[in-house]
Design a protein around this nucleic acid. Sequence first.
DNA 1: GTGGTCTAGACCACT
DNA 2: GTGGTCTAGACCACA
Lengths: 133, 133, 133, 133
Amino acid sequence: MSKPSVLKIKVVTGDIRPIFKQIIDGIRLEIATEKLSPGSKLPSYRGLAMQLMINPNTVAKAYAELSKQGLIESKKGLGLFVSENRQSLSDDEREQKLAKAVTVFINETVHLNYSDDEIVEVIKNKLKEIKTT
Amino acid sequence: MSKPSVLKIKVVTGDIRPIFKQIIDGIRLEIATEKLSPGSKLPSYRGLAMQLMINPNTVAKAYAELSKQGLIESKKGLGLFVSENRQSLSDDEREQKLAKAVTVFINETVHLNYSDDEIVEVIKNKLKEIKTT
Amino acid sequence: MSKPSVLKIKVVTGDIRPIFKQIIDGIRLEIATEKLSPGSKLPSYRGLAMQLMINPNTVAKAYAELSKQGLIESKKGLGLFVSENRQSLSDDEREQKLAKAVTVFINETVHLNYSDDEIVEVIKNKLKEIKTT
Amino acid sequence: MSKPSVLKIKVVTGDIRPIFKQIIDGIRLEIATEKLSPGSKLPSYRGLAMQLMINPNTVAKAYAELSKQGLIESKKGLGLFVSENRQSLSDDEREQKLAKAVTVFINETVHLNYSDDEIVEVIKNKLKEIKTT
DNA sequence: GTGGTCTAGACCACT
DNA sequence: GTGGTCTAGACCACA
């Protein structure tokens, strides 16, 4: 299985996130939902750059970040692969990241005067949507 | 009622948000939770800048943004006031903003492998926390 | 104390390490030996780049890495500062890093046929040298 | 004694070192610890490549490097052999290599805030471990 | 002025 | 061919 997986990542310039962040989020999602299984090969810098019509260095930056997080591993001259034993974040880190995201989210939404139930509803739908895509 | 309300906003440099964003969020929250009622006067640029120990330009930027959103209005020579009819956003806009915030939030959280229920739980708690503060 | 500290970092192209790594190591060392105290301001991208006669982006890469490690914090528009509460690495991580470095070191040296004592001697001297510089 | 020694080298892709470096280190270690004696025959390019399941070019690169260092010699038509007089490095070179390795090692470790004694301890243990394996 | 992102193109190391 | 480093220069957001 030396062919790289084809990533279904989309990158849009209109997004708030910088492009390299979109790539990171996209791949992290694929890995988390196991559409990208441990050991599988990722597209090359240049390949993904061409597919997404962006600069290879932007891809490199995203891959470097994922590499440092231990989610993917590089084998020089061979390519990049999803880590076998993806060393998951410590519980502390996970909690902190979640708390941070929640705070940001709340800051962005409270003033919109939605009820708690409405907000929760929208989130649940989005979660389902992602997992079934 | 010409005395400006004293805002209980806090601004911290360690925050992920830029300072002007923290001010916007703070004031929006005060208005949404009706601690700041329609028609009440806001502190002056200089006054708030001194209170928060930040650059007046930063306050100006925040006020400008809030004005653009229609949440506050300037009455020439008198100062800035909370708008009387504060439901300035159309339903469409509200929905869009919520959807956008949800998407950002999900992007930051899915890969953490929390269950849907756990995520919803944390959000509910945070919402309660804010409204009782 | 808004003046940035002057870093005594040296960067040499002959080094095995890439330049951005040399910067990281240099600053980490300054922080570890407390020549660079928490809260103090670092030189700007452009300033350090000029001082070291390298490209600002190379400095940016080093600073970004240190930022992500939590050793330094950026305050947009103000500059970069040594973190107050430098969240130290967990004991596990420290041990792993040490073990890794030791393995690399041994691989590089065993075949030189030095006695254990000689090797230890050289290391001790180097350690002293650094701490008194 | 025309049969080549069977090298007990292991090569892992997860290693920080490139594969050809692992081979070099492995053989150098075998020679230094005299498990591989002067004059003994080394496995062929193809043989070692098959044994380690790697690209023959990678083995070639490792052998070329070892030849350049004078640790092994090729006898045309016969194969590769461990050099008879294996103290090929001058004292100067040995010192330089040691100093370089120490510097790299220190750069990786100082910021971990281990005491000198702890560091020395770990190294001593590792040295013992290797020599008794 | 500050930090940070993106592009373009060159060059090196590894397999 | 692969990953990775470095340079150059443009552009944006923030204070």
